[in-house]
Every structure is written in C-alpha cells, then in structure tokens.
Design a protein around this nucleic acid. Structure first.
Lengths: 191, 191
DNA sequence: TATAATCGAATGAACGTTCAATTGGTCAGC
DNA sequence: GCTGACCAATTGAACGTTCATTCGATTATA
C-alpha cells in the first residue's frame, strides 16, 4: 500500500508496478497484486492502460524520461568539453545510485524481450540532447574518434556496472572514488 | 526442434530453454514449449530438474561456467600484467560477441529477481582464478588501488555494454577498434 | 526382473481481462 | 440553486485460458 491514492490512481498504479516488478519480476507480478498494492481495483488499471504489456512499456518510458531529466536538467553549454562529460557521467551514476528501483527496472526491461531497441528519433528529448553533445565533441575533435557505441560503453557502461555493484554489495564508494572514476572515464574518451 | 535428442535429453532441455527464454523471456516460456522444442515429453523435464526455477538456475550456472572457461582457459602466468589484463578483457568481449544467446541469458537472469548475488566461495573456479589475478596485480602495485567493484566496472562493465550494442546495432566493430578499447581499458586500471 | 527413463493426458491453481453495475462530478436549462 | 442528463471513474466478481506439475502407464536397460 504505497498510498498515493489521494493523488491520481494512474500514478499509484505505475508506482506499485515499479516496486513489485523490481522485487518479483515481470512474471510473478499479477495485475491483481499491482491493484491491491496501489489501493485500487483490478479493473481500473484497464481504464488507464490497454493491458499489462502496455502498462510495462509506459512505465519504462516514464522512468527513462526521469533519467533523461536527471542527466541533462540544466544546461552545460559554455563549459569545457571535459567538464561537460564529467558532469554528465557523475549525474548518471548518481541517478542510478540514488534510485535503485528505477535502475533495476530499466535494466530488467532492457535485458528482456520487452525491449526493442529504438530508432534515434524515438528517444527522450533529453537523451537526444545527450547524443548531440557527444556528436559535437566528436566533430570538434575534442573526443577520440570512436564509434558512438564505444563511447557509450566507456561511459554509461561503466556507470551502470558500478551502480549495480553499489546496490548489490556491502561495498560503498566514497565521493573521492567516484570522482576518480569520472576522471578515468574522461581520460578514456577525450582526445 | 534443436535436435540433440540423440545426445542426452537433459542437454536438449537446457539448450531449448536457453533459446526460448532469450527469445520470449522467463514468463512466456512454458514448460510445454521447452519440451516440444527439445523433442521430449513435458514430464521428463521433472526427471532432471526439480521444477522450472531449478531448471533456470542450473542453466545459469552452466552458462556462467562456459564463460569462465572461455576467459580463463589457458594459463596466463608469466605474462606481464598488462598483457594478462588485455587478453582477459578481449576474451570476455569475444565470448559475449560470439555467444549472443548466452550473453542475453546471463544478462536477463542477473537483472531479474532470480539472481541473488553470491558469496565469493560460490563462484565458478575459473572466476575465482580471475579474481585472484586482479588481487595479485593489486598487491604487487601493478594495478591502481581501486576497489574490486570499480575494477570490474572499468573492465567487464565496458565489455558487456559494448557487446550488447554489438548485437543490438547495425554497427559492427572491427578488430582494430576492439583492440583500441582493450588498450584503453588497460590504461584505465594499470598503475 | 528390477530399475531408470519416458510419455502425455489430467489436474488444479493462477492469472489477465471483461463487464454489468455503481458512484461521482460537470454543467445546461430552468 | 435545483434537476437531470451525460460521461468519466471505479468496482470486484466472473470467465476462460494458460500453465506448472503430477502420476499411472509404458518402454528401454541392466
């Protein structure tokens, strides 16, 4: 009973879907349980979502948009490239570290058959901005001439992996260590 | 019908479970379909596995062991640390790149509630050897003094992320690019 | 002949989805 | 300000299906 029932029920449904799927997986999370946890009836879910898959897809979009906002919130223009990269990296790590449920849901979704890699145009606006940043850096010769996928692996791949261990493990990383990784990542991709 | 029925049925079941779960997810992969695809009866699965969860857990152990073998197969001792790291990294990437199903299954499993992070002792012997390699390098001062989790993120995190995009994307990476990433990863963690 | 392997129909529970019925709110016309 | 008409929101029991698992019978193996 994650009681936001006073707010709108659609949000309550999304919220309890998030919590339950992270804890129990896609299977093993019946609609009836989502409804109970959200404090609504089973039927109402179908008023807001076409079906279970639609609910899951919409939740993913929602969470991914949160991530986009967290990373690209304020503008980075007129900062040097190195600083831009560092900040973006730190924010992505921070989002993952501070939002374990959201992170786990994203990962669970993206590694399941639910996920169909999207066209560039389908991305969240903030994410598009992010790609633009990298592209600009690349064309200005400030970044190493590496394929975009390699860039992503060397930056966000590291952030995701690190955050996973952050949550899984007893180990917690102090800010100094995180900073060091951010620097290392910059080193890896800056020309 | 991935016909290895002439071999033992247990393997046939594991194989079709792998294929089907990668394509359809844990849910949406009924035992009956696994049986059909393996060319065996539904009942026989319960002769070899306690239940569906057990089947999935055993498949994971199996695949993870394959990965361990692929990475640590021959011995690396008396190679310089840099070369050891580079080879291990390249092999892990190669395994993922060459075994899309196995990779996807590992990722799907590890990002689902099936996965309960294990104690050190539970790891595959080859994986343990891998940890030992890093530990030795660390204690000899050949690697940067970073937490083990950071080391993993900077190496395998990158490999996994890169391999995912390798499979998802149109983009394919030539050996030269892969080599460059391997070098970059070494740079990132070597003292 | 005893034991292991194998079959596949039967079972019963769980689950996604539907729907007829109820409530609540909005607002036009009086 | 009241009425009633309309539509959105909401309920939860009921439906039909799917699925994991069981088990008695059958076949192969030793």
């Amino acid at each position: 009973m994650t009681d936001d029932t006073t707010l709108d029920k659609r949000s309550a449904v999304l919220q309890s879907t998030l919590t339950l799927i992270v804890e129990r997986g896609f299977h093993n999370t019946p609609m009836s349980l989502i409804a109970k946890e959200a404090g609504v009836s089973a039927g109402i879910i179908y008023h807001y979502f076409a079906n279970k898959d639609d609910l899951i897809h919409q939740l993913y979009k929602d969470v991914k948009a949160q991530l986009g906002t967290a990373i690209m919130s304020d503008d980075l223009h007129d900062l040097p490239m190195r600083e831009q990269v560092k900040r973006v990296w730190l924010r992505s790590f921070r989002f993952y570290a501070d939002h374990p449920q959201e992170m786990r849901f994203i990962e669970q979704y993206e590694n399941s058959p639910y996920y169909v890699p999207v066209e560039r145009g389908d991305y969240d606006p903030n994410m598009q901005e992010l790609f633009a940043l990298f592209e600009a850096g690349y064309e200005a010769g400030l970044l190493k001439p590496l394929p975009a996928a390699v860039m992503q692996a060397l930056t966000f791949g590291v952030a995701v992996s690190l955050a996973k261990q952050h949550h899984a493990g007893s180990e917690h990383f102090d800010q100094q260590t995180i900073d060091l990784v951010a620097e290392t990542v910059c080193e890896a991709i800056l020309a």
